[in-house]
């Protein structure tokens, strides 16, 4: 499940956009969006300050170490300037018809820390 060196993280396409099918797989199979292996505890989410404020993230759950690495390298979906939050659990919210952005979101339900 671990992506080969030089390839995009598991839940991202080569062009840096999120692969929606894999995002769903990460959400339900409870696997990390970077390495594709089973999640640990705590669970990390990487997002913009706006996503943090709305408590609605588009990027899938990550291992803490994978999230920190992604944050440090500014990889994948423009992670530079992003915020990393940790949580024990999350809600997976599918898009409703009235949502302008038809991507699913993640709502951490027991925030532990944010940085």
């Amino acid at each position: 499940m671990t992506p080969a060196a030089g390839t995009a993280p598991f839940a991202w396409a080569e062009d840096g956009t999120l692969d929606t099918r894999r995002v769903t797989q990460c959400a339900l199979s409870r696997i990390c969006g970077v390495c594709g292996a089973g999640l640990g505890r705590p669970i990390a989410f990487l997002g913009t300050q706006e996503e943090v404020d709305r408590n609605a993230f588009h990027a899938p759950p990550l291992h803490l170490a994978c999230g920190e690495r992604l944050l440090a390298t500014g990889g994948a979906d423009g992670a530079a300037g992003s915020v990393l939050v940790t949580t024990a659990g999350f809600e997976y919210v599918r898009a409703a018809k009235e949502d302008a952005d038809r991507r699913a979101t993640f709502r951490p339900n027991s925030l532990l820390r944010s940085r």
Binding site: R30, G38, L39, G40, R41, P42, I43, A88, G89, F90, N109, S110, L112
Partner: peptide, 18 residues
């Protein structure tokens, strides 16, 4: 537990990951 129904408790054992 493996559905993550109890993850919100932040219990080290009763968690979908473990």
């Amino acid at each position: 537990v493996m559905h993550g129904q109890w993850d919100w408790m932040n219990d080290p054992e009763i968690h979908s990951s473990n």
